[in-house]
Design a protein around this nucleic acid. Structure first.
Lengths: 199, 199, 199, 199
DNA sequence: GATGAATGAGATTTCATTCAT
DNA sequence: CATGAATGAAATCTCATTCAT
């Protein structure tokens, strides 16, 4: 899949230059405020080259975070392999918040990524959703997480968190709160009797 | 403030025409795909008039949904008055999903609204957040909902749900799932002992 | 015809600025060497404004020379009114060469103008051709010019002269020569017998 | 010079393919409307190959018409050898119009050729101008053509005729008219006395 | 206040030309 | 030498916003 035509040397060089420039801007948080053309200037290439490599602003963002998204997905896989299912899921979700918090621009990008239905960004979202799906499925299988939800619900919540990143002053605390709610909500609920019994 | 300047007759007529046109487009789900100018054309007014009444696309959306948002907030108040706190909160959140599902375009608009930090839309979001805050506070006070979360977390989740509306085929089921998770997560968690005790 | 909508004041100002800039460039002979966008910069307006006023480079050139072309046509009319037909025609044609010689860029522009089949430039060419047609018709009517040619032939010749302006070092002399040939060729030819008889 | 490098077999084949494609397009009159790249595609070769063989659009046109231009020049030579000077000149000029009329695209090409100051096309124009110069010189020498004009004037006129080919519906008649004017203009003018004497 | 033509920054496309393979 | 992907300057279009009427 994705036969990855081996890209001519100069093309690769230009592509790298564009990615480097974009990464810098992204980390500075100015990514969505910049004219798209300017990425070409920053990278020292022509606009035609920019557009050939990255037809849209989103494609460029996705490329920059492609590795990072892959890393996140990999991390999900690692956690599945080394931790009990429920803990793996929790660790993954808290890690997502850490990431969004650590890297300027990532949160907004991931939010956009999760809301994009087509293009390269969507693929990244898809990959993440699959990783999340596996984590959830494991936890459902071993009985620690309820069976009536799937990855879609989790993605929606993550999207909501990411989208809020740059306009809620108290974001970190609120985001942690949402994850807590989510995890508690996901946990297999005690039977009513228990609650009644203890009341 | 907001002294309801008594708008000249033609001004009122133009404003209404713009709202009517926008409502139609919003319901068709094309609101964010249309050139802002075109709303003027659709309403049969000049672009200058459009801008006088609604300086931004968001302001227009907000105006269309202003009543609706007010209704939602009112509904929160009513529910607080007539139901036990936890049930009121649950009813409100489920009602939000119903609304997003019922009205094409509302979901995305509400999502945008919740993510907008300034302008008229933000006011709508603020009003909603306050209503949600009151519901949560009640439930916290009567002990049915945990005390370590606030309205911000709930708003993020609602945002995630709304933003996903028009690109997830299985949206309704997933949205319901998220609300369920959220409510279960919000509920004051039984002590571990209880669970252990019943096991 | 050409109802000349009275152009808003600022629009007129921009248009004038564009014309002034273009005139300068045209006179310097760089008109066809410049990027079209640059005319906007030189005039201190945006490209959209440039394109609205003058959709093509040719339209801009025509506008610059519109008055001049009108002047040339008027001159044809004046000459018709004040001189015997043949002399009027001769004076007009020699005057054309003078103009092409005097104004850097005009020759090439007129050549382009005469070769353009549509757009504003073509109108200018049309106007000139009509003026020439009248001059020729007069001369044919009073018997000094042969009846088997029309303005089209004269226009072709003028085009050939203009197009050669900027790449033939000896242009002026050659152009005068062509006009001489043309005028002599146009003059009603003596019957062959005469020539033979006098030989 | 022009040592006719013996061209590798595949190179010759590519060159021929390009010429064939260009000839077809030229005959269809689309030569100047086509992207230069496309000639490569039409010929089934790469753009690099196109550029190696023909560095410019003009060079390609010139190559297509090279033989033809040579033929025209040869014809001038033949006519000089077999006809009285004045008749030779007349025959040559009328033959030029025939050619322009017979071959779609040739006229415009020749016009361009005559206006080009450098490159392969210019060589073709130069060759033609020399042939014309010889014809005129002969006729001047034997007294049938006036001494005060040279080939440059004739070239300008031919250029004007060619350039007009594809946008004047009545081109053929007008072109013939121009040639008639030119020949009559070139002919040594009878003394005024003669005209008066025969009147 | 109402109007919509006018504006111009920015996005996008085209295409002659180069150059790595 | 052949190839054609890659390049980037230039051309053109889009559209949110302003402002003269």
């Amino acid at each position: 899949m994705n036969a990855a035509k081996p890209l001519r040397a100069d093309a690769r060089r230009n592509r790298e230059a564009l990615l480097a420039a974009a990464r810098e801007v992204l980390d500075a948080g100015d990514f969505f405020d910049l004219r798209f053309d300017d990425f070409a200037g920053l990278a020292g290439v022509g606009t035609g080259t920019l557009y050939r490599h990255f037809p849209t602003r989103e494609a460029l963002a996705e490329a920059v975070y492609h590795e990072e998204v892959a890393t996140l997905s990999d991390r999900a896989r690692d956690l599945r392999a080394t931790l009990p299912a429920e803990e793996a899921l929790a660790a993954f979700l808290r890690g997502m918040v850490d990431h969004m918090d650590a890297y300027q621009g990532l949160a907004r990008t991931l939010a956009t990524l999760m809301a994009t239905r087509s293009g390269a960004l969507a693929d990244g979202g898809q990959a993440l959703e699959e990783a999340v799906g596996d984590l959830v499925a494991d936890a459902v299988r071993d009985g620690t997480v309820r069976a009536d939800v799937d990855a879609g619900a989790v993605m929606m919540v993550l999207h909501g968190i990411g989208a809020a990143h740059d306009h809620r002053p108290d974001w970190r605390a609120e985001a942690d709160g949402v994850i807590t709610l989510l995890l508690d909500g996901l946990r297999r609920q005690p039977s009513p009797k228990c609650i009644e019994g203890t009341a």
